[in-house]
Design a protein around this nucleic acid. Structure first.
Lengths: 329, 329
DNA sequence: TTGTATGCGTTATCAG
DNA sequence: CTGATAACGCATACAA
C-alpha cells in the first residue's frame, strides 16, 4: 500500500509538504505542487481516510441516522433514495459516511449515543425522520457536540441546520389542485402521526385551504398506516367527496378501500413514491426529490463542519399524477 | 472524550494492560481484569474504532457493495433488507461498516478500487448482485487482497465465500407447486438477464422440472424488467397455460398484462417482496429472507477475517402466496 | 503478569 | 515556502 511517505520520498520533499499539497494549503510553491501531484498520480496514491480522521479534528466521519420500517416497502424506497443521495454526494466531497439505524441507539442515553458516535470518529450527523418523542435526539441537538442536519423538522441552532420541502404549502397545493379538478366541497383529511413534525405542518396546509375556500373539513388520524387509512376511508368517505392523505401509503390504503367499496372519490397523497403506480387508479401527489434533499443535506453538513452556522433550507416540491404506465420500465 | 489513557490512569495500570483486557487477551490476572472493566463501565469508555483500525491490521472495516436501481422500488426493498441485516449484525460483532454502491466504482480499474478500499481502511467486502460482466469485481476476488463474501454467485476461494439460497431448487419448487395446483401443461418461463448467475441457476430449475414432468417449456428473456415481462406475456401467454417468472417484479408485469388482456393464467414469481401484494391477484412466490442472508454474510466475513477459509453457504427458502391482506398493516 | 516503546498514516505546529 | 516533529488513540512485540 502506497502511503504519503512514499510520495514524499519519490517527490523528494517532506511528508508535511505532501500533506499541504493534498489539502490545498496556500503556502506551497506552484513548482512543488505540480511535482507532488505528478507523483501522486503516477503512484496512484489515495490518502488514508482512517489516518486522516484520527489525526485531524476537521476531517471526520458523518453518520446517516435512518428510521427503518421493515413492514412496508414504501419507506424503503424513500430511505434508499436518502442513503444513495447522501453517499454519492459524500464521496464527491471526500466525506466518509456510515449508516446507522434508529433501532441501534434507541435505548441509549445521550451520553452513550455521544460516546458511541465519538468512538466511530463521527463529527456530523444527518437525522432522517425525527419525531417530537425522540427525546435523546433532541438532547443531542441541544448539546451542540456534533454538527447536525435534521430532515423535515424545524430545529436550528449554532451547529444544527434543518432541511425539507415546505410541507404546509405542498399540502395546500396538492389538495387545492385535486379539489378544484373535482369540484369538491367536503374533505376527509387523513393525517399522519401526532408526534411527527411534518404531520402538523401538512395539517396546517389543508386547514388553510379549507378556510380560504370555505370547505367542510373532517380530520382523522391515520398514523401513516395504510390499514388505518383504509379503515377510516371505509367509515367516513361516504359523507365526504374527496380524500386527502398526508402520505402516499395512506392514499393507497384509501384508494384500495374505495375500489373495494365500489365508489369513486378523488384521492391525493404525499411523497411521490413508485408504489403509487400499482394501485390501478391515478392519484395526485406531491413529489419530493429525496435524493436531492439528501445531497443538499450533506452539503449543508459540510458547511457546518467548516464552521458555518446552522440555518433553515427549504427545498422545492412538484405536483404529479401517478399511473402504472409512468412507473413501469 | 475519554480515551484508553484515562482508563489506564484511573485504574492504575498501563495502557497496554487496558488494551489486553479490552481485547480479551489471556495473560491478564482476574484482579486487574475486573478493576479495568469496572473503570471502563464507570467512565463509559468506548474504544475508538478509528484508532483501532489504524493501529491494528486485524481490526478493519467492512464494505457493503450494493447495486442500486432507482427505477423500481422492488430492488429498494431487497437492498434495504440486505443493508439493515448487515449493519445490525455488524454492530453486534463490533464490526465497522460502510455502504458503497456499484456506481461509485464502476469505471475504476482493479488497482483503483483496491486503493480506494484500502484508503477507507477496508479489509472485507460483501458483494451483492454481481454478474458475469463485472470483470473488475472478478479480478478483485481472484486477487485475494480482501476477504470477500459474494451473495448469489458461485465464487469460492481461499479468501472468498459465497452465500445464497438454492436457486435451482427454489425455482423448481415454486414452479412445481404452481403447476400442480393448476394442472398446467405448457409453461412460459420469463428468465432474468443472461449475465446473472441466479438467472441460469433458476433456469436450470425450471428445465429440470419440465423434463421430469414432460411439460412443454417456452423460455424468453425478461431482463428482470417489469415492462419486458409485460410485453412477453402479451405476446406468448395465449399459447401457454401458466407464466413462471424469475423475479417478482416480472411476475407483477406479467400479471398486470394478463389482467389487461382479461385472461387468466397462474403466475409465480421469485423473491417474496411486499410489492407482490399490490397487484390485486394472489401469486405464489419464493420467499428469501434477505435480512437473514445478509446477517449470515457478515458472520461469514467475520470468519474469513479471522483467518478461516472460504466456503459455500446455502440458505433456506420458503414458498408463499402473497395477497394484499397479508401485507397491509 | 505487567509495563515500555514503537508504529499505523495523517494533520498541524513550529522553526528554519 | 519547506521540513522536522509532535500529536491522534490504540495494538503489539518485547522487556522487565
Amino acid at each position: 500500500m502506497v502511503s504519503i511517505k512514499d510520495v514524499a520520498k519519490e517527490a523528494g520533499v517532506a511528508i508535511s509538504t505532501v500533506s499541504k499539497v493534498l489539502n490545498n494549503y496556500p503556502n506551497v510553491s506552484e513548482a512543488t505542487r505540480q511535482k507532488v501531484n505528478e507523483v501522486v498520480d503516477r503512484l496512484g496514491f489515495v490518502p488514508n481516510a482512517v489516518a486522516a480522521t484520527l489525526s485531524s479534528k476537521k476531517t471526520g466521519r458523518v453518520a446517516l441516522l435512518v428510521k427503518l420500517n421493515l413492514d412496508t416497502s414504501a419507506s424503503d424506497e424513500i430511505n434508499m433514495e436518502y442513503i444513495s443521495g447522501a453517499i454519492h454526494k459524500a464521496k464527491e466531497l471526500q466525506m466518509d459516511v456510515i449508516t446507522v439505524f434508529h433501532s441501534m441507539i434507541e435505548d441509549m442515553t445521550v451520553d452513550e449515543v455521544t460516546s458511541y458516535f465519538e468512538s466511530q470518529g463521527i463529527r456530523g450527523i444527518i437525522i432522517y425522520g425525527i419525531t417530537t418523542k425522540d427525546k435523546v435526539l433532541h438532547k443531542l441537538i441541544d448539546k451542540g457536540h456534533f454538527k447536525i442536519v435534521v430532515i423535515d423538522a424545524p430545529m436550528v441552532n449554532e451547529s444544527t441546520s434543518c432541511i425539507g420541502v415546505d410541507h404546509a404549502k405542498a399540502q395546500y397545493d396538492i389538495a387545492k389542485k385535486t379539489i378544484e379538478e373535482n369540484k369538491c366541497k367536503k374533505v376527509l383529511y387523513i393525517a399522519g402521526e401526532e408526534n411527527g413534525y411534518v404531520s402538523s405542518e401538512r395539517l396546517d396546509g389543508i386547514k388553510k385551504l379549507c378556510e380560504e375556500k370555505k370547505l367542510k373539513l373532517m380530520v382523522r388520524n391515520g398514523q401513516f398506516s395504510e390499514l388505518r387509512a383504509r379503515q377510516l376511508t371505509m367509515r367516513f368517505s361516504k359523507n365526504n367527496d374527496c380524500v386527502v392523505c398526508a402520505s402516499d401509503l395512506m392514499a393507497i390504503g384509501a384508494m384500495k378501500a374505495l375500489i373495494d367499496m365500489d365508489i369513486f372519490r378523488p384521492v391525493c397523497g404525499f411523497d411521490g413514491i413508485i408504489l403509487m403506480g400499482y394501485v390501478g387508479k391515478q392519484m395526485n401527489t406531491v413529489k419530493q426529490d429525496f435524493v436531492q434533499i439528501s445531497e443538499r443535506a450533506i452539503e449543508e453538513l459540510n458547511r457546518l463542519l467548516n464552521g458555518e452556522k446552522g440555518r433553515k433550507v427549504v427545498m422545492p416540491h412538484t405536483l404529479v399524477r401517478m399511473k402504472y404506465e409512468d412507473i413501469i420500465i
